[in-house]
């Protein structure tokens, strides 16, 4: 089975004033389709940078990123936007819903941006609302929803384009334990249906749920649970 994600020799350097910060160094990583990966590490270890890079929101200074066998580092911004639209779903810690749009409109947003027909949009949004238990919240705005509902809207939005992978950055960071548990179960269900799930967290119990753990420190991959002797 070919790897979904293949990173080789990735370097990401930020310039802060005169000093250089190596956010990622000598990173080689391969993630197969359908994996459930937790990226852990302290703040500033480069885990968020790695996630942004995987989501094509950021570019490596050196190295090659192959997504589904295709080198995406050399794509034009428009092509990268298309890859994001079709293959990648984002779930953020702070939900990032558009406050003036209803739950249904927020879920439909990726399809609206992709130019999908309104009739098909309505059908898919209706199904998603039902799947995520939000059917009676369709016309509510984000400020009328609870934290758990907001994150469910965000997950529905992330999956509405049927992406190959979901990138979740501290998805339970703004939620209480019970609601966080629900959200994680939702994400894991998606993973069981074949979607690659990559979760960034500094919560070790959360990270332990994943089948594969990556430990980042100072921009380097310190530990990969699938490789015993590293």
């Amino acid at each position: 089975m070919p790897a979904l994600i293949e990173l080789s020799g990735i370097e990401r350097i930020f310039h802060l004033g005169d000093s250089e910060v190596h956010a990622l160094r000598h990173l080689d990583l391969s993630i197969a389709a359908g994996e459930y990966v937790a990226v852990m590490g302290p703040s500033g270890s480069g885990k968020s940078t790695l996630l942004n890079l995987l989501g094509l929101l950021d570019h490596p200074n050196i190295g090659i990123y192959r997504l589904e066998g295709r080198d995406v580092t050399t794509l034009s911004p428009e092509e990268q936007a298309r890859v994001r639209s079709e293959r990648i779903g984002f779930v953020f810690q702070s939900f990032h819903l558009v406050p003036r749009l209803t739950a249904a409109e927020n879920i439909a947003l990726p399809m609206t941006l992709a130019g999908i027909e309104p009739a098909q949009r309505a059908k898919r949004v209706e199904q998603a609302l039902k799947d995520y238990g939000l059917a009676d919240r369709a016309s509510h705005r984000p400020d009328q929803l609870s934290g758990g509902q907001r994150q469910r809207v965000a997950i529905a939005r992330a999956t509405i384009m049927q992406p190959a992978m979901i990138l979740a950055d501290e998805p339970t960071g703004n939620l209480d334990r019970a609601t966080g548990e629900q959200v994680m179960r939702l994400l894991e269900e998606l993973n069981q249906r074949g979607v690659t799930l990559i979760v960034v967290t500094h919560d070790t119990t959360l990270g332990a749920r994943a089948r594969r753990q990556l430990l980042m420190e100072d921009g380097e991959l310190r530990h990969d649970s699938t490789i015993k002797n590293k």
Binding site: L57, P77, E78, A81, R82, R84, S85, F90, P110, L113
Partner: peptide, 16 residues
């Protein structure tokens, strides 16, 4: 700003 960042993450191109 954060809405624009979100739109980009959701696949909006600069032109959009």
């Amino acid at each position: 700003t954060s809405e624009i960042g979100l739109l980009k993450a959701l696949g909006a191109t600069g032109a959009t």
